[in-house]
Design a protein around this nucleic acid. Structure first.
Lengths: 334, 334
DNA sequence: TTGCATAATGGCAACGTTAACATTTGGGCG
DNA sequence: CGCCCAAATGTTAACGTTGCCATTATGCAA
């Protein structure tokens, strides 16, 4: 039994089954115009030879790949796993596959993501943006390649989708004000983060909309340690009864920092985070936070491409609001 | 300017540049046997027409896809992001792409992963196993499709790669014994986890190898809360001076549980975790833990496939040891 | 029996690319 | 001046699949 190096094609199956190649093809696609017994004979031949359809021949003929490309500048990033879950789920639904590509971030441009994708077998592409690409304003998607950007910025030529970070802050601030707090202090993130900046804007503008001048923010760096320091710093501020941190790690750090200064959460100070990422990592801490549905974001992006199927797709911009999850770290005042 | 619906091919470029299709192809591949000025003319034509090579035609001709498929039963899983980083890095290195597929886990078989991949444009595949597939013993990879399993079990027909969980426990136990502890208590994980079970074996056998009968283990469920309960339970055991938890979340929970009972870490009890996953989430806690390099595991898997390039690949089994990272949660005794 | 509609199947071409081989061109050298 | 070599370019065919159209069987009414 010599190893069969060459892959088996419809031709081989056709010969063995004693039918034409076309009949084999029709059997593969379960066409109703093939007699059941013929089908069975063909299927037997396919099994015997171990036939599997060749993707290249098929898509060459069809002019479609049934695949969506995903370009990431950083694979390791908060929420990417959930987004991928969404990509995969939506792709599955449409019978599509996902092709993943890491794009070198030097330079950090949409053009580099686009050209990286251009020679791959994809019908459309999704780019996950973490920062502001240098060519965001001038970028044009490849002709015939529908391009969806995961970002909260709007683009004139590409559809975009992301979580609504502004609304997230609005929800948190209004929730805290609604619980009687006079103002909300904020622990921010590094300035290069697009989503972080948008959260900051949301915090600031929502306070102003309620006639409250935003207090001095404390700049953090996403780490619990920076939240800890922020908590210690804010512990001595008598006006500080509510703190909103840009992520859960800083929120948790903040709680511990406050405790180290003898302030208790939520008795003395209320704390809210963002991301719902503490999950099972921290015991005895039901942090009030905002949960985003990154899977839904991912699904939307792939749906947009795989669901189009030839129809001229319009450019759309979608922002999904997060959900405020009430924990034990906020208290009513007054 | 009517939209050009049809994609441009070498033929179009050749016509515009006034050369043969072959010369265009040679230019695309930067062959040295094309005069620089001809190349430039061809390149200009490509730019003008917006030519990009068609993947289907190319791989049909070549009989290769330059793509590795990755099948996952669960996309959301510890370490998957790092593994993907590794997949992407290795693929990049070889000029390959990665195609991601979620496999329905009902039934949980390698066969279902394999058949899911069979119609996709891939030259080889990687399966990430979290549990024991029903057909592990009998599975045969598709002919011509090199298959690598990410698991610590060895397979007769497929190469395998994973972190060395047994060795991980050996390192931790010997480290603690070396620091003077008389025994090591263990917080385990649910029994369906392959890697968790292997950690448990490593703990048990290493203790026995040192002539120590393993104490009763405490079964956890990966959550900090279960670690907290375990810590409280072990706080009253006077023989317990060192605790090894199956992951960092439980280790952290355990520390807090011990503290809630008045025991301090590391003064009273030493605690070690696994995963190095606390990172920036918890302030003021430098947990002694074991760090795995999942990126390296991912790279190895894709290297095995993309690096083969036609040569008949042997079946290999690779286990990468973790690195014990010393923190502040272990103390010498005596 | 013939004619005709319908079901089942076959033949051919084309999708875009490139390996292998064929051809042309330009120079160098005896 | 003719020969040969190398560089540059062209021609052909094939990779596997499937849409289109042609052909052959089958059944049924006239």
């Amino acid at each position: 039994m010599a190893a069969v190096k060459k892959s088996v094609s419809v031709k081989d199956v056709a010969r063995l089954a004693g039918v034409s190649e076309q009949t084999v093809s029709r059997t593969v696609h379960d066409s109703p115009s093939v007699r059941p017994e013929t089908k069975e004979r063909v299927r037997a031949a396919m099994r015997e030879l171990g036939y599997r359809p060749n993707f290249a021949g098929r898509s060459l003929r069809r002019g479609k790949f049934k695949t969506v490309g995903v370009a990431m500048f950083n694979i390791t990033g908060t929420g990417n796993l959930d987004r991928m879950e969404g990509f995969a789920a939506a792709a599955d639904k449409h019978g599509y596959a996902i092709t993943l590509t890491k794009v070198d971030g030097h330079p950090y441009t949409l053009e580099s993501a686009s050209s990286r994708m251009s020679a791959l077998p994809v019908d459309g592409m999704v780019v996950i943006m973490n920062r502001m690409p240098a060519d965001f304003g001038t970028f044009e998607p490849l002709p015939g390649m529908q391009t969806v950007l995961v970002t909260m910025l709007e683009h004139p030529l590409c559809s975009t989708v992301d979580n609504d970070q502004f609304d997230c802050s609005r929800q948190v601030v209004e929730y805290l004000l609604g619980r009687g707090h006079k103002t909300v202090h904020f622990i921010s993130c590094p300035e290069r983060s697009l989503s972080g900046m948008r959260r900051e804007e949301g915090w600031r503008e929502t306070l102003r909309a309620h006639g409250i001048e935003p207090p001095q923010l404390v700049r953090g760096d996403w780490t619990a340690q920076s939240g800890y320091a922020a908590g210690q710093a804010l512990a001595d501020d008598p006006t500080c009864t509510a703190i909103y941190a840009s992520n859960d790690a800083m929120a948790y750090g903040c709680i511990r920092g406050l405790e180290s200064r003898g302030k208790h959460v939520p008795q003395d100070v209320s704390v809210v985070g963002v991301d719902d990422s503490l999950g099972d990592i921290v015991p005895d801490c039901r942090l009030t936070t905002v949960r985003f549905d990154n899977k839904r974001v991912g699904m939307w992006a792939v749906d947009k491409i795989a669901g189009a199927e030839g129809v001229e797709p319009g450019v759309e911009h979608m922002l999904f609001p997060g959900v405020l999850v009430e924990g034990d770290t906020v208290r009513d005042v007054r």
